[in-house]
Amino acid sequence: MIWDRFRIEGRVAVVTGAGRGIGAASAVALAQAGADVAISSRTEDQLRKVAAEIEAAGRRALVVPADLSDPAAAAELAGRAAEGLGRLDIVVNNMGGTIPNAFLDTTPEYLENAFQFNVSTAHALTRAAVPHLLAAGGGSVVNISSVMGRVAGRGYLAYGTAKAALAHYTRLASFDLAPRVRVNAIAVGSVATSALDIVMTNDELRTQMESKTPLGRIGDPEDVAAAVLYLASPASAYVTGSVLRVDGGTDAPNLDLGLEDL
């Protein structure tokens, strides 16, 4: 049956930024499909709640509180996952994000920090994970990029540049690691996570975003989690180097930050 292509029993995944939002939903989805999951973020209380959902699905959870903005800490996570859960098959580089900023306020340091937070940490974890993935017979890496990595809008220079880099990193890494490790990404649109709290609690802003999204709504973390499961599972066994759009059809920024001309 086709559903069997989505099952990942006996496999182990590691998910970063897993305390809430897309990371939490992805970790739970992978567990519901049969994987044991190592989860990491800065906030242990949030991780414990996600771990309870993983265990409710009948799978093991490994909680690893860490500040993954440090590439060394991100790299260490691969070994922690493999040692704690016995192997490693799936890496989900979900951690990332950068606060919008005006052009003249975007210093070189701000841009470099955005790159490190969104790209360098993902590379650190992926690089450290590769020997474990190969030892397990191969594996899948899923990077969470953004629609802002391919469209243009004011205020998103640092974030969009970093996410565009992550998307192309995905394409390049897929060649380096083929054929035994697949590398794909998801270009995420506006999703109802804590980053959009100010929008979800403001009817005017929410209506603006919904009206500028072809599907007419803001995404749910489970919309992205379903795509993560597809790319992590044998269902996508013939897919690598791809950037899958999960953005409601968005082709332009759907929130005006109100930044004036210089």
Score class of each variant (00 low, 15 high):
R180P: 00
F115N: 07
R42Y: 01
A124W: 04
G96Q: 06
A61M: 10
R11G: 02
L259R: 06
S194R: 15
L244M: 14
F6G: 13
E83M: 02
D176I: 05
L262R: 14
G84K: 03
G149N: 12
D70H: 00
D4V: 13
P65S: 09
G17P: 04
A52Y: 06
A152I: 13
A165C: 14
I54M: 08
H132G: 03
A72P: 00
M95V: 15
P179L: 07
A24E: 14
V151D: 06
A75L: 10
M148C: 02
N143E: 01
F115S: 08
L157Y: 05
D67G: 11
N94Y: 05
A75I: 01
I198E: 08
Q32M: 10
V228L: 09
P131C: 08
L255W: 04
A66M: 11
T16L: 06
A158T: 10
S41I: 07
M95T: 11
G137C: 06
L30A: 08
A195S: 13
R245A: 12
E83G: 12
N93F: 09
E83D: 09
V14F: 06
A52V: 13
N254I: 11
N143W: 07
A165G: 13
T250A: 13
A38L: 07
L177W: 01
L133C: 05
G248H: 05
V151G: 04
A52S: 14
L259V: 12
A226L: 04
N93V: 03
T121R: 04
G153F: 09
F115G: 01
L259E: 05
R182I: 06
G137K: 06
V119C: 14
A226K: 12
D197P: 00
R5P: 00
V147Q: 10
R245S: 11
E260I: 10
L68Y: 01
V130L: 09
M148T: 09
